[in-house]
């Protein structure tokens, strides 16, 4: 799970003298870990409290009677609460997965073309793709709503998938182009001489080589789609079509004081992306270093 595997073991060991910066660094790291962890730990501790324990004053640091009730309620299809929540999770899974897969299908050939071909307008197109995320989501909300209405997609998951695609595409295209730039064209040539068609050469030789980049961009697209709130909130109005971030808000407005339930829901919806990211983060950092930073 280690992130950037750098080759600098020598420094830490050689440097015997514990100077100010070294000690200060450890203290800083400790504080940073507390800062990062406390909110998440508190989320979890709250989620295993009873509703009454959560709103005791002064707060119980550790729950006296830990309970998984909130989780049970959220994940059991036998009550309304759980049915909704599971459906929203399912919606999120579908929307994020579709976005991710389509994103890869669209980004890979585009990145490949930007890297390999020299067609007129290439640079202009490339940078116009890149600046997409400079525009705030809010300002596109209303026009996109109109577009979706024209396409008859309002209140469907496809409106979200189409929109989310554009969040991931710039990073995906950029990172993957970096990968393809670093793959010698001769490998493709060799494959074609060895009997592969253009497409086979791409599929059997180039694709596997850019796998870390594809995985990295896929994670990114998935996480962005999974977490998106604003468009999901605006485009979807049937309760059964909501994605989990919007569902979370719905819970909150309906059960204002049920903090354990809310924290449990937040916890559950964070688990997939956190696990996904931690398992695959080495690809992410590798892609960032290989495809992007090194140039």
């Amino acid at each position: 799970m280690s992130a950037v595997e750098s080759a600098r073991p020598a420094r830490a060991r050689k440097r015997r003298k514990r100077d100010f910066w070294s000690i200060g660094g450890w203290i800083f790291l400790a504080l940073l870990l507390i800062f990062s962890l406390v909110p998440m730990v508190w989320m979890f501790l709250t989620s295993i409290k009873t509703q009454f324990a959560a709103i005791e004053y002064p707060p119980q640091w550790l729950p006296k009677h830990p309970t998984l009730d909130s989780y049970r309620r959220l994940l059991s299809p036998s009550n309304d609460f759980g049915r909704d929540f599971l459906r929203w999770l399912g919606n999120s899974v579908w929307v994020s997965t579709a976005t991710t897969i389509l994103g890869v299908i669209i980004a890979v050939p585009a990145a490949y073309a930007f890297s390999r071909f020299r067609f007129p307008g290439r640079n202009g197109l490339f940078y116009s793709v890149l600046v997409r995320n400079m525009f705030p989501a809010v300002v596109f909300l209303m026009p996109l709503f109109v577009v979706m209405r024209t396409l008859d997609l309002v209140n469907t998951h496809w409106s979200l998938i189409l929109t989310y695609l554009t969040f991931g595409l710039p990073l995906s295209i950029w990172l993957l182009k970096g990968f393809y730039d670093n793959i010698p064209i001769e490998l493709e040539y060799a494959a074609r001489i060895d009997g592969a068609s253009r497409f086979q050469a791409f599929l059997r030789i180039i694709m596997p080589l850019s796998a870390p980049g594809i995985i990295a961009t896929a994670i990114y697209s998935f996480i962005v789609a999974w977490n998106e709130y604003l468009y999901a909130y605006t485009f979807i109005n049937s309760r059964e079509l909501l994605t989990s971030p919007v569902g979370l808000r719905t819970f909150f407005t309906e059960f204002v004081t049920n903090w354990p339930g809310l924290m449990a829901a937040a916890f559950i919806m964070s688990v997939p992306v956190v696990v996904l990211f931690l398992v695959l983060q080495k690809y992410f950092v590798k892609a960032l270093t290989e495809g992007a930073v090194k140039s």
């Binding site: 001769e186 074609r192 001489i193 068609s197 080589l209």
Partner: peptide, 30 residues
Amino acid sequence: LDPKDRDIAMVFQNYALYPNKTVYKNLAFP
């Protein structure tokens, strides 16, 4: 004619061996 249909073989200046395949698989690929 497509390269694959010309019945030629080529050795590249930078060798262009498939980096993710073993030597065996490199040789087997054609």
